[in-house]
Every structure is written in structure tokens, then in C-alpha cells.
Design a protein around this nucleic acid. Structure first.
Lengths: 343, 343
DNA sequence: GCGCAACGGGAGAGCGCTCTCCCGCTCTCC
DNA sequence: GGAGAGCGGGAGAGCGCTCTCCCGTTGCGC
């Protein structure tokens, strides 16, 4: 009794064929109710659990999907990158959304980090071996080669955010420009006269578009030029940018930060410098992450429905898996403005 | 050419047997260098990638380990629980440490959440089917039945934190009492006279031990009774607890919070109430998570080397996998005090 | 020169499952 | 009453890989 029971064992105990046991377990075809019960009893007494490797060998499905976080070109500090990834609430939300959509289907996400060229090769190699049924890819950098590598390796892939260069893979994304416009109009409506912005990294499309959208909306209302400091979506970048903007534009009265982490840092800097938020300076963030409600005052922010977007990624991947020949689908989500206390 | 190339195809192209190709790919035995090159060339021209399902079927190894986050008994709000898990930096650190140790071995973590009885059954069922080689389990609640379920299902398991009731599984843990003592002595050394503590949930061993260690150390120095408010390791709990302690003990001059998230919230409350940190009130946290350095002033805290502990879990699991009959091993880590600005 | 390792390669038996056939039976309909 | 459809079950062929045997070839010591 050393080895775990197999279908064969269950069949012998139940006095039926392997095929019948398989049918009962998978519910693939009608089986006589009495026999079904016999089989189920045999499964119970033997303590049988189907071997998933054997199953995937023939079904060509593993029930796993690779959840790949990719970014940081060469020369970056990998450890720092990992620290960034695991501390940014954004990725937790992605995982949450992915798991929520996977779970009812009995599937699981397999975490993969691709922060170096080597790691990327590894990820592609493993995925090509069929370790997972497909890949959900979140790139944190603009010119990530991974989407292209994955698709040309024949791995079913769905991306978070439209890739910089077109790739035959579906994606979900947010209408960043609209979100930034919402932020701009809200600041203006509150009477903000001297807005500034802490924008995201400009080599990332999302960073670019949030800045564009904000600037365009501001321009439409007579603010042709809005001072801007670039940050890389981290708290310390937000701190530095806010400090600089404050020094160069001491009369600023409104800040739009391209994500909540930077907005939060901006609020901290402002308060340390004696500015009241929102009375002296209004601050609007982006994402509506947990950082938004953890900040005092709570952040007014542009909501990006990350969990739903991640869930949609799963759905897109699953349909791509079902009909591999169909052209990739994509979905763009619309942001909302969530008004709280900071603006 | 529809189906992906198999070993057989490579063997045909290279003009050798399947076995030889397998040997070259896995480097299992000496193979004539010339033949090796031929085989490698054939692999390249065919674009061959070994099928991992077929491989695991015979090797009985998947290269995946389940990373299970478990907790929240019945009746809990699952969505809220997930939000908690994914926003607490602690779990990110666990994932980071696990991936760091798994990666050089070409393995991957498979994320599994077990926040309800159903989910627990699912997790056990999947793991029994061999979807992963073993499980790394992080329980957030004391009386979690999952460790027992897993071990009696024959799943190789390593736990983060010693389980409430003994289970035949290895674990890693921290000397929580020592850490709390460090915090107490530091507060005392700074001249703190009226300490209070925001302790963790008392149904979790870590919460209990941190409180005990703190109280014992305080008692040794003449503070027989230290006011305490219980929190569940979240920021909002920290906020409420601090507010209450401040109301009931307005003259407090030192706070020990059982984790950084609560310490951070405590700092915020204190400052909002006009107390200066650390001049009026010293605050010590626990964990040394990213929250510690994101707080202003930066948190003095007891360092829990979560990443290393998680890496050790992987190592323990791997050795358990190698020698299934050996008794489970465990490792206890020692905490350090990290002195920053808040105390 | 002979025996014996040791080496390098091939053949083939599974690993445990699914799924396509195929077959016998019953039921219906004319 | 007979034909045809449909249902429920079994037999068996793989899925693609690893690994144990087995065998021919060298190399070396005596």
C-alpha cells in the first residue's frame, strides 16, 4: 500500500472498468446511478485522488496560469525591484483579482518574476514546457520584450496594459487620459489656480497618458503649462518630487500625483512643510489603492478597478485558450473619481 | 507540424534514440560530445521543449510548491480577508523570500488562499492530486485546521509559525518573546515611564508571545501592569486601539505595537492629537516591514527576517521531500532591534 | 592475449490517465 | 415482429517522458 491508489485500483474495488470510474469522477457521460454509488464508495475506501500529471498529459491542461511580473531592464537592482513589486499595493490587487476569477474554475496562479534577461528566458522556457496553460503578464516597464517572446513562443498570453509595440496578445487597460482629466477638472472645480503634477515614468504608457490627459484638460481651461516632476510610482520618488515642486513653486495650491503612493508621500511632505491638505493644497491621487484610505486625510483619487481588470484578464485568457485561432480580444476600463478628503 | 515536437521527433532528426536525447537534455549520463552537439542542434531545429506533464508523470515532481495563505474561520468576510492579506506587506515579504529560494531550483510558487472551509477542502484536494510537490502554509489564525488536514492527507508541509496544536510538519518561527523584550528594554532605556501596548490577536501564538514577552520584561523592571489594547494587525485596528489608549491613559509616553502597520497608525493618531513622536511619546513597532520606513518619523522596530524565514521554509520543504521518512525539522529565528526615529 | 570493467548507446516497459471505438442491450416506432 | 436508434459499459490505444535493462565497444592490467 506504499503507492497511492490509481484508477485501476478503484476500478478493481468497484468491480468496473477504469473507463467507468473515470466517467464517474469527471461526470463526462451518463453512468448508472447504482454503479456511480459503488464507484464513489470505492473512491472513498481507497482514498483515491486522481493524479494531475497523468491527467494533464492527456488533456493538455494543467489548471495553472502563469502570473508574470516583468520589468526592470538590465543593471537594475533586482532585490530592490522585488521589494518594490511586493510593497506596491497594486500587485496585490492584481493577484486578488486573478485569484478571484481563477478559483471558481479550480485553477491557480503560478507566480513568476522576470526582472532580468535570464529570468525572462527562464519564464518563457518554463511556459513553453506547459508548466501552465497560459500567461497573465504585468509589465512595469515600457519596452518589455517579454510579451513578444511569449507570443512568438506560442504561449497564450494576456497583458495588463497595452504594450508599447503591438503584439498578438489581448490586454486589459484603463482609459488613463479620462482619469487624468477627471482629476484636473476636480482640482479646477475646487478653485485650484496653480496646479502641479507628479507624473509617472514617461517610458510607461500609463505614465505618459496620465500626464497627457492631465495637461490637455488643464490647457483647455487656460493652464497652458503645468509644472511637472517625474516619479517612478514609489513613495520616495513622490517625496522627492513634492519637495522639489514645493521649492520651485512655493505658491502651488493643487497636486495631481500619478498614483496613490506618490500622492501619499506628497501629502506627508506638504504637511511637514506646514501646508494644510486640502485647505492650502489639494491633492489628487490615482488608483484608489489601499494607500488612499490609509492616508490622513484620506485621498481623493481616480479609481482604477484593478481587481476587475485582473479578473477580466483571466476571462480573456480562458477564451483565448478555448479558441486559439481567434484574434486576441482586449478590454478598456473607464476610471471614476473618488472624492474623499484630500481634494 | 500542428503538434509540438516530442522527444521522438528530436531523436529522429538527430539519428539517435529517445533515451539518448533525454540523457543529453537532462545531463543524466555521459554522452559522446559529438552526439551531444548533434542532439542539441536537433533540439534547436525542431524547437523542442520537453513536456512537463509527461515528465512529472514519471518523475513525480512538478516543480511547483503550493504557497497557502490560510485563516479566517467561518462567517468572516472573505473579500475583506483577501484585501487584508494582499495589503499587508508581510505576505509580500513571504512571497519574496519563497521565490528567492525557489528560483535557483527552477521551481515556482502556486498561490492558494484558504479562507473558508470549502476553500480548505479544495486546497487539500488539489494538493493531494499532486498539483504541487508540497505546501508552504502561512496561517493567520490560531486554530487553523489546515495543517492537520494537509499532513494527514500526506502532503509534505512546512509552516510559518509553530502551530497551536502539534502537527507532524516542520516550521519556521521567530523568538517573539525575545523581540518584545528588546522593545521593552529600549523603551525603558529611553526613559519611558508610562508604557502601553497595542498587542496582536491573542488567538494567534505570535500575538500572545509578543505580549507576554513585553509584559514580562516590563514586570522585571517594575511595571507590573501595562495597559493593553488588542488589535488584529491592521491599520484601522491600530488606530482604534491607540485612540482608546490615549483616552484612557492620556499621560502615556511609550507605545509598543505588535506590528508595524499598527505602530504606523498609532503614530498618525498621536500626531493628530498633538503628541510629538518620539519626544512626547516613543513608539516601537514589530516586523521591520516596508511600513516602518514609510512612516514619518521612521519606525524603531523589532526586525523579523521574514524573507529569510520564508527561504528557510523552502529549504525545509525540499529536504522533507528528499527524505519523507525523516522527522520534520524546524528553525527558530532571532529578532533584532532596529533603532530609527520613533523611539 | 585474454578477461573484466567501464562506458556509451538502444530497446522497451511503464507512469496514470482520457477518450475513441466497439459491443450488447433495451426501447420505440412502424 | 423487426429495424434502428440510443444508452451504458468495456477494451485498449495512446499522451510524452524517464529509467532500467541489456548489449556492443574500448581500455587496461596481468
Amino acid at each position: 500500500m506504499g503507492r497511492p491508489p490509481t484508477l485501476e485500483d478503484v476500478a478493481r474495488v468497484a468491480g468496473v472498468s477504469r473507463a467507468t470510474v473515470s466517467r464517474v469522477i469527471n461526470g463526462t457521460r451518463n453512468v448508472d446511478p447504482a454503479i456511480q454509488e459503488t464507484v464513489r464508495a470505492a473512491v472513498r475506501t481507497t482514498g483515491y485522488a486522481p493524479n494531475s500529471a497523468a491527467r494533464s498529459l492527456v488533456t493538455r491542461r494543467t489548471g495553472a496560469v502563469g502570473l508574470v511580473i516583468s520589468g526592470a531592464g538590465e543593471g537594475g537592482d533586482e532585490a530592490a525591484y522585488r521589494r518594490y513589486v511586493f510593497s506596491d499595493p497594486f500587485f496585490g490587487r492584481v493577484v486578488d483579482g486573478v485569484m478571484g476569477a481563477l478559483r471558481p474554475r479550480g485553477m491557480h496562479p503560478m507566480l513568476m518574476l522576470a526582472e532580468t534577461a535570464d529570468a525572462r528566458e527562464q519564464v518563457v522556457a518554463h511556459l513553453r514546457q506547459g508548466i501552465a496553460d497560459g500567461a497573465l503578464l504585468v509589465s512595469t516597464h515600457g519596452e518589455d520584450p517579454l510579451p513578444g517572446m511569449l507570443t512568438s513562443a506560442g504561449v497564450a498570453t494576456v497583458l495588463f496594459a497595452r504594450p508599447a509595440r503591438p503584439v498578438p496578445a489581448g490586454y486589459v487597460d484603463l482609459a488613463h487620459r479620462d482619469g487624468a482629466r477627471l482629476a484636473a477638472e476636480h482640482l479646477l472645480a475646487r478653485g485650484c489656480r496653480r496646479p502641479v503634477t507628479i507624473c509617472g515614468p514617461l517610458d510607461v504608457l500609463a505614465g505618459q497618458e496620465r500626464l497627457d490627459g492631465f495637461n490637455q484638460a488643464m490647457a483647455r481651461h487656460g493652464h497652458a503649462y503645468v509644472p511637472c516632476a517625474e516619479g517612478n510610482f514609489t513613495a520616495s520618488a513622490g517625496e522627492q518630487s513634492m519637495t522639489r515642486l514645493l521649492r520651485e513653486h512655493p505658491d502651488l495650491d493643487g497636486v495631481f500625483a500619478a498614483n496613490d503612493l506618490m500622492a501619499r508621500a506628497a501629502v506627508q511632505v506638504l504637511r511637514e512643510q506646514g501646508r494644510r491638505v486640502p485647505q492650502d493644497v489639494a491633492v489628487v491621487g490615482f488608483d484608489d489603492s489601499s494607500a488612499a484610505t490609509a492616508t490622513r486625510p484620506e485621498l481623493t483619487t481616480v479609481r482604477q478597478p484593478v481587481e476587475e481588470m485582473a479578473g477580466e484578464m483571466v476571462r480573456l485568457l480562458l477564451t483565448a485558450l478555448e479558441s486559439p485561432e481567434a484574434p486576441p480580444e482586449s478590454v478598456i476600463f473607464e476610471p471614476d473619481l473618488v472624492v474623499r478628503e484630500s481634494a
